[in-house]
Write a protein that binds this DNA or RNA. Structure first.
Lengths: 344, 344
DNA sequence: TTGTATGCGTTATCAT
DNA sequence: ATGATAACGCATACAA
C-alpha cells in the first residue's frame, strides 16, 4: 500500500497533483465537480499534507511562535498568561496555525532564539510578550527580519504591538476614587522597568493632578506584581493612613486586601481598594474587587491576527492597537455593591 | 548575494554538499582538516540548516510536542506545570529539540490533535500529561503509531510512562502520622478519576490498615486539587474532629490550613497537616508544610529522554519509570520545627 | 480550467 | 574519506 501523498490523492481522484493541491488549499479555479471528487478522496483516505514538504515548497511553515520573556515560574502562576495564551492559542487554531512556545530560563537561552528558531525558518513569525523598554531581543528580531508583534509597549513605532489602554484605565480609577471623595490615595505599583506599570503610574498621577489633587509621593510604593509583594508594600503604607489604594494588578490587590484586613481596616469604609485586569482573582476576592477590566484573551487573538497580517503583507506599515479598558465597580470601593461598569 | 544554504557553505569551504552535511551533523569519517574548514565557514557565515528541508529529507522534524490535557486556566495556575514544563523545556534544549505546546480548550480541539499534528508529521513524538485512566487520546495515539510517553499513569503496560512514586509517598505520610500518634487521620483527596489521586488514596489507606489503624471512611473527602476546594472540604471535615489531614497537593494543603486556622485549630498541636509535591507553596506557607517531595522538573526531563529513546529505538520495549519520593518534615506536623527529609 | 515541469534545502545511497 | 545523485512531498509559474 503506497504512502498517502498528494500524488496518491490526485491519482485516486483522477486528476493531476496541481489540481489536487489547489483543492486542498482552497484555491478557486477548479470545476465544482472535480473539487468534489478530490475532496471525497481526501475525506475517504484522511489525507493531510506533510508539514515539512509544504513548508519547503511554499513559503510558510504555518507555525507561529510565542516568546514569553518571563521565567517559567512567573508564567505558570499568573492568570494573565493563562488568558493571553488562551487567546493566542484559540486564534492560531482558527487560522490553522500551529503554536510553538518558547520559554526562557537562563540568559544563555536568549541567544538561542535568534539562531535556532529564526534562521531555521521554523516559525513564520513571533508574538513577543511585554518586555521592558528597549529589550535587546526586539533589536535582534528587527535585524533578523522575521515578522513579529509585541504584546505590551514598544518605543519603536515601526513595530506592531497590541496592548490594553492603560492610560485610560488608570484615569478611570483616579476619577472613580475622586468621585468617592477619597483624599489620601495611595498606589502599589509594579516595577518601574515594566512599561505597563510606568504608564499606569504616569496616567494615574496626571489624572489626579489635573483634578487638583496631586499625588503624594509618600503614598506611592513600588511592588513586583505578586500578592506577597503587595502585602508587604501595603504594610509600609499603613502608617501613612491612606483612604484608597490602587494596586496595579488584581493579584496585588488581593495582597493589599489581606494586609488591610489584618490591620483591622474596613473595606471600603476605611480604605477603598482597586485592582487592575479583572482576571479570576478579582471577582472572587472578599470583598469583590473594583478593578479595571482589560480584555486579555482578546489581546492575544488580536496579536495573532496582527502578526498574520504582517506575515502576509509586510508592506502594510506597523501599527499599534490598544484595546479598551473599563472600570468594573464592586464592593471593594463602594459599600452598597453595585455591579457593572462605567463607560470609558 | 546568494542565499545561505548548505550548498553555498560547501562551495565556500571547497567541498561537496555531502561532506558539509556530514560535518554539520557531527558524523565522523571526515578528515579533521576538512572538518575545520567547513566549521570555519559555518561560524563565519552563521549558517543554520533549514528546518523544513531537514525534516523532509531526513526522518525527523526535531520537534517534540507537549500535550497538556487540562484547561489552559488550570495549567497556568498550577506550580506543578511550571516545574514540569521547565524540566521538559530544558531537556529539549539540551537535546537540540524544539518544544511545541498543545493546549486543549474544548472537546472539539481534541479531535484536531491527531489530524493536524500527528499526520502532518509535524512532531517526532509527544509527551502527554497525566490523563485519567483509559483516556481515549491514548488509544488514538497508539493507533496513529506516533511515539509518545505519558507523564502519570497508564493502564496499558506497552506504553512508556514517567511518574512519581505515589505509593511510597502516601505510605510515608501514613507512617509519619502514625509515629506521631495521630488517630483521627483524614484525607482531602483529588478527584478519583485522577489516577494519581486514586493511587495515593489506595496506598495511604493500605498503609494505615496494615498498621492496624484502618481509615475511617467519614474522614475521606474528595476535592479538586484547588485551594478553595480543599478549604471547603476541610470545613466539612471539621465536625469529625480530625487530628491530622493529608491533602493530596500542597495547594490543597494551603486551603486546609486556612480553614483550620479560621476555625481556631492550632497546627500542628490540634491537627497535623501534610501536603504533597513540595512545590513553592509548601515551604512558604505558615506554618511551613510537611509534604511529600516529588521531583517534578526531573520528571519532565526524564519524559523527554524516554521519548527520545522511543523515537530512536522503537524496538526497545516500553517502560515505566517511577521517580523516588521522600517525606520533608516541616512545622505543620511537628512542633519543634525540624528541617530535612526522611529517607524513603 | 487543468496539467507539466521545476525547485525548495537537506539527507541518504551508492559509487569512487 | 569524499562526491555525485536520487529522493523527500508539496507549491507554483507556466504552458496548454
Amino acid at each position: 500500500m503506497p504512502k498517502l501523498t498528494l500524488e496518491r490523492v490526485a491519482e485516486l481522484a483522477g486528476v493531476s497533483r496541481s489540481t489536487a493541491s489547489r483543492v486542498i488549499n482552497g484555491q478557486d479555479g477548479v470545476r465544482p465537480e472535480i473539487r468534489r471528487r478530490v475532496l471525497d478522496v481526501v475525506e475517504l483516505t484522511g489525507f493531510v499534507p506533510h508539514a515539512a514538504a509544504r513548508s519547503l515548497a511554499g513559503q510558510h511553515s504555518r507555525i507561529l511562535g510565542l516568546a514569553i520573556r518571563q521565567t517559567t515560574e512567573q508564567v505558570f502562576s499568573d492568570p494573565y498568561f493563562a488568558a493571553l495564551v488562551q487567546g493566542i492559542s484559540g486564534a492560531c487554531n482558527d487560522h490553522d496555525q500551529t503554536l510553538s512556545l518558547f520559554l526562557f530560563q537562563s540568559a544563555a537561552e536568549h541567544e538561542h532564539l535568534p539562531a535556532r528558531v529564526l534562521r531555521t525558518k521554523l516559525v513564520d513569525g513571533l508574538v513577543v510578550t511585554a518586555t521592558f523598554s528597549d529589550d535587546p531581543l526586539v533589536w535582534q528580531l528587527t535585524e533578523s527580519g522575521i515578522p513579529f508583534v509585541i504584546v505590551g509597549e514598544v518605543s519603536n513605532p515601526h513595530i506592531s504591538s497590541v496592548d490594553a489602554d492603560n492610560q485610560n484605565g488608570a484615569a478611570l480609577v483616579a476619577e472613580h476614587l475622586l468621585s468617592l471623595g477619597r483624599t489620601r490615595i495611595a498606589t502599589v505599583t509594579g516595577p518601574m522597568r515594566s512599561a505597563a506599570a510606568s504608564t499606569r503610574r504616569m496616567a494615574f498621577e496626571r489624572a489626579l493632578a489635573v483634578a487638583g489633587q496631586p499625588m503624594d509621593p509618600e503614598l506611592v510604593v513600588e511592588a513586583d506584581f505578586t500578592e506577597d509583594g503587595a502585602y508587604a508594600a501595603t504594610q509600609q503604607l499603613l502608617v501613612r493612613a491612606p483612604d484608597a489604594i490602587f494596586a496595579f494588578s488584581d493579584r496585588m490587590a488581593v495582597g493589599v486586601l489581606r494586609a488591610l484586613q489584618e490591620a483591622g481596616r474596613r473595606i471600603p469604609e476605611d480604605v477603598a481598594v482597586i485592582g487592575f485586569d479583572d482576571l479570576p482573582p478579582a471577582a472572587d476576592s472578599r470583598p469583590p474587587l473594583t478593578t479595571v477590566r482589560q480584555e486579555v484573551e482578546q489581546t492575544g487573538s488580536v496579536a495573532v491576527e496582527l502578526l498574520l497580517e504582517r506575515i502576509r503583507s509586510p508592506e502594510i506599515p506597523a501599527r499599534r492597537i490598544e484595546l479598551p479598558t473599563r472600570l468594573v465597580v464592586r464592593a471593594s470601593s463602594v459599600a452598597s455593591q453595585q455591579v457593572g461598569g462605567q463607560p470609558s
